[in-house]
Design a binder for these strands. Structure first.
Lengths: 368, 368
DNA sequence: GTGAAAGCGCTAACAC
DNA sequence: GTGTTAGCGCTTTCAC
């Protein structure tokens, strides 16, 4: 805002170059400055309230000193999506501690064209963190074509070169399912996530693997195409209730917390209770899970850590540091709450009788 | 990333200056370019994939083309705070539509010193949006001292020059209280927000005004110093339960949804029910209110709109447009849900008998 | 209508 | 150790 390095230099009776090297701590600079002069310059700078112009510096050093964080769309931040929030916290924390500034972008199309090319992938930032829940992103292609440094988050890729942070979706699906199996459930349904989101498939695979490992069949009606929304849980439940009582599941692994809560609420409205009528597991372990009624068992992803990991990896790339693991898969865990925690009564028995007895339970609960 | 305006100029057989004016649409530029040349330049630019270097441009034009959004601390983004989220959505949406980039900062102290001075208030951005829930901010002082353009959000100020977006906290407190009064409640408590947050006082004043207008007394035990956290609601309830039954309130206006839900959960644990034992009103109308058990009546602030308004005002200031209203107060509303919606039984009666009958209700509910 | 020249504020190379 | 010089990529007078 007015006061430049030349003003400082003049005040300290040195050249601009001397001031520059003195102030920017330059280690490898060829222009050396005596400790005493350095002190004088620093004093004057503080005195004058000098603050370097970041863009001028960027222009000269060819480094922006800023990172970009790209979300798929603006509404990604809407209240209902704690995931984006968590990623942002992680990224911001790490960026700050590494003295990098953070710019926020969305890859939302404007007039049908992604503004990405010129706006995002530019020397405005040194690198990008791309949150890409669905495959096929023009931003990413652009980055790769231009060899612009970037790290993706929740992006399924086949490119071994790509730097990508993921959570262990397969394991998450498996964990949820194994938990239900351990409680004695045999008929377990899965309300699957949207097909356009890449994490849906591995979670489903985890579910199927757990079932297979336990020697349990997965009949087609147990796989319900749902989604990540409230309403998907409601519809999913209705789909399950259309089945003849004997064929209904006793437990459900939902696409995420929102979906699970949608289901729980509909259950509530119909006089059904978890875990007695259906045991329910969610995904994400947001505080939606904590506050649900009953509190919801849910798979937890280390969201904030994912943001931090992405940022660290990006910065390492920018520094040219070696990257040990280009596509780390962060561990998930299961938080058990009341929506599943009762041992399913008929655990030791097998097959049909169990279903019937569950039906009895249901009627006895309903009037409660 | 390599390709400069000179490359474009050379390719089109013109000077860099011509290319510059042609490409940046320059209206008032003295360097005119014929429509035909202009087209040729534009074509070449596209062909070469030219994208102007934003920092070089900023340096020359002295405008950064970016806005800064400052939150008080990193954890402001934690899952539990949909407010920051909402503000961000609003700001981001508006910034994008105005072709401004957005940088994210926190005013968190690092090593006890705010990094603000040099980092945030700098030509890196053209102006700042400061979310300042508590009075006294060094960033803000800094901005004012340097006449750096900024707009505050949720900041109580006495400076008529300050641009500041607020919600009508007074009206919010009043609305909540009037609603409870209309339902027949006479003993209404207020779990007050933290004293360090500037919105607490006007909300309390709204509560007191509504009570006074209805001719209802506010006895000291009805004003409980709580806060914006879960635990504050729990503690608040316990404080109220310490009162002799006859002196307890029949309704509570809580500092915010989190506080209200903390209270509701504790009530639940103690076998108490809303609205029968205590009618409860929250604040913010987050989806915490929607999902609460029972769903929570809450005062809604137009959070996203506040973010948008702040951004619009900042941009107007930067453009030098006249600003009609420097400190707009955005309207709030009340979303009524089950935590209050029953008419209080003893509405027509008065005073003590009512309290007694509530006590009876309580015991009948407890064993349910 | 177009080009040459100067400069935004900073850093990096090189000479002394 | 320190100063001089030459850009980083762009815009903007001003002369032609």
């Amino acid at each position: 805002m007015g006061i430049t390095i030349r003003d400082v230099a003049r005040a300290a009776g040195v050249s601009a170059a001397a001031a520059s090297t003195a102030l920017s701590g330059a280690k490898g600079a060829s222009t050396r400055v005596s400790p005493e002069t350095r002190r004088r310059i620093a004093d004057k700078a503080r005195e004058l309230g000098y603050v370097p112009h970041p863009h001028a510096r960027s222009l000269a050093t060819r480094r922006a000193g800023a990172l970009g964080l790209v979300f798929p769309y603006v509404q990604a931040f809407a209240d209902q999506n704690p995931f984006c929030n968590g990623i942002m916290v992680g990224v911001l924390e790490e960026a700050i501690s590494e003295h990098q500034n953070l710019m926020l972008f969305t890859a939302a199309a404007e007039d049908g064209e992604t503004p990405v090319d010129g706006v995002i992938v530019s020397p405005r930032v040194d690198g990008l963190i791309l949150v890409l829940p669905r495959p096929g992103s023009s931003v990413l292609e652009h980055c790769k074509a231009k060899r612009f440094p970037c790290v993706t988050v929740v992006h399924q890729t086949e490119d071994p070169e790509e730097c990508s942070i993921n959570a262990d979706d397969f394991r998450g699906g498996r964990l949820a399912t194994e938990h239900l199996i351990a409680l004695g459930h045999r008929r377990i349904a899965h309300l699957m996530g949207s097909q356009h989101i890449s994490s849906s498939a591995p979670r489903r695979l985890g579910y199927e693997t757990a079932m297979a490992d336990a020697g349990l069949p997965v009949e087609p009606p147990m796989l319900v195409q749902a989604g990540f929304d409230w309403a998907d849980g409601t519809r999913g439940l209705e789909r399950l209730l259309e089945l003849p009582p004997k064929e209904r599941p006793t437990a459900v692994f939902a696409a995420n917390d929102l979906c699970a809560v949608g289901m729980l609420r509909r259950m509530h409205a119909l006089g059904l209770r978890a875990p007695d009528d259906f045991a329910v597991v969610g995904y994400d372990d947001t505080w939606l899970a904590e506050t649900a009624n009953p509190p919801l068992t849910s798979v937890r992803m280390p969201i904030r850590e994912m943001g931090m990991a992405a940022t660290r990896m990006l910065i390492a790339r920018l520094k040219g540091d070696p990257i040990s693991e280009r596509q780390p898969v962060l561990p998930v865990s299961l938080t058990v709450r009341k929506s599943t925690n009762a041992i399913h009564r008929d655990a030791p028995r097998s097959g049909d009788p169990q279903v019937a007895s569950v039906e009895e339970d249901r009627s006895s609960q309903r009037d409660h």
